[in-house]
């Protein structure tokens, strides 16, 4: 935590990043164009944009799962090549290994790094408790609800204590109540050691409730970063109750004004 060397460089720096995919009929599809974004150490940044705007693509660049077509990615001041070893990644879809129990899924994250099995399992049990699944360790993925699977996924990522947390619409498939509960869980866990977080979502309310900064992306293709808003709501926050504050409404109104035209553009593009 505080004892760690405090690098002055931002945890994640994307500078002038382009992302392009080859199209099946030839040519290239440019998903993201000239995106620059810094995430400081212990900062919680949310990226919001209309569906299909390339938010996840940008996140994959920060994770090293995808190489940008132009521009570069720096992690703590070092040029990223290959996978980002400092980052934990929580995926939108279920990424648990279905053939392992919840506990083994979490323990595996440690075992990979060479932690002895017994110790890994013990620590996994501690993490099961932290995400509120103390007695669910022996269940397999299909025996857990969507929210419970996300909790296991969160524990699996956090048990390795990554310096950066990348989240790709992690609570997207969950129902509204579960999302807010998960949001609070995330805030609680994050408050412990304040990792740098890059959180992708299409839900503006969720973004404002959780983040320090909300970054807006335009509709794709060639999506750009078109807005960067500081969220000055006091912490600690309650992801549910914060939504009732007047300041929340003011922020929501200001940001939504910018986002709305992009959302309409995204749908218009699809329909047209």
């Amino acid at each position: 935590m505080a004892s760690e060397t405090e690098p002055t460089a931002p945890a994640v720096r994307l500078s002038h990043v382009d992302v392009a995919f080859p199209e099946p009929k030839g040519g290239v599809f440019k998903a993201v164009s000239n995106a620059s974004l810094d995430v400081a150490n212990s900062e919680f940044v949310a990226i919001v944009g209309p569906t299909g705007c390339g938010k996840s693509t940008l996140l994959n660049c920060a994770a090293g799962l995808l190489a940008p077509a132009a521009g570069h990615v720096e992690i703590f001041g070092m040029q990223l090549s290959g996978l980002n070893g400092h980052a934990g990644y929580l995926f939108q879809q279920d990424a648990l290994m279905p053939w392992k129990t919840a506990r083994d899924n979490i323990a595996l994250a440690l075992e990979i790094g060479g932690t002895p099995r017994i110790e890994a399992v013990e620590r996994a049990q501690v993490w099961l408790g932290r995400v509120g699944l103390k007695s669910f360790g022996d269940r397999y993925a299909h025996q857990l609800s969507g929210g419970q699977r996300k909790r296991v996924g969160l524990a699996q990522v956090l048990i390795r204590n990554p310096k950066i947390l990348l989240m790709d619409e992690p609570f997207g498939p969950l129902d509204a109540q579960t999302r807010q509960i998960m949001g609070n869980l995330l805030l609680d866990l994050w408050a412990g050691d304040k990792k740098a977080v890059l959180f992708v979502t299409h839900d503006l309310e969720e973004a404002i409730a959780l983040a320090d900064r909300v970054v807006i992306m335009s509709a794709g293709p060639e999506a750009r970063i078109i807005g960067d808003h500081t969220i000055d709501l006091v912490r600690p926050r309650d992801a549910t109750e914060v939504r009732l504050q007047p300041r929340f409404h003011a922020l929501h109104k200001a940001i939504w004004g910018q986002l709305r035209s992009e959302v309409i553009k995204a749908y218009g593009g699809e329909i047209g």
Partner: peptide, 27 residues
Amino acid sequence: VSPVILANARMLGMSERQLFRHVYWPS
């Protein structure tokens, strides 16, 4: 093998051998 499970395993730091043992083989 689900690409998401593979990507997740890679992000968790699995080497090729570990991928084989924990992902490809059980699948």
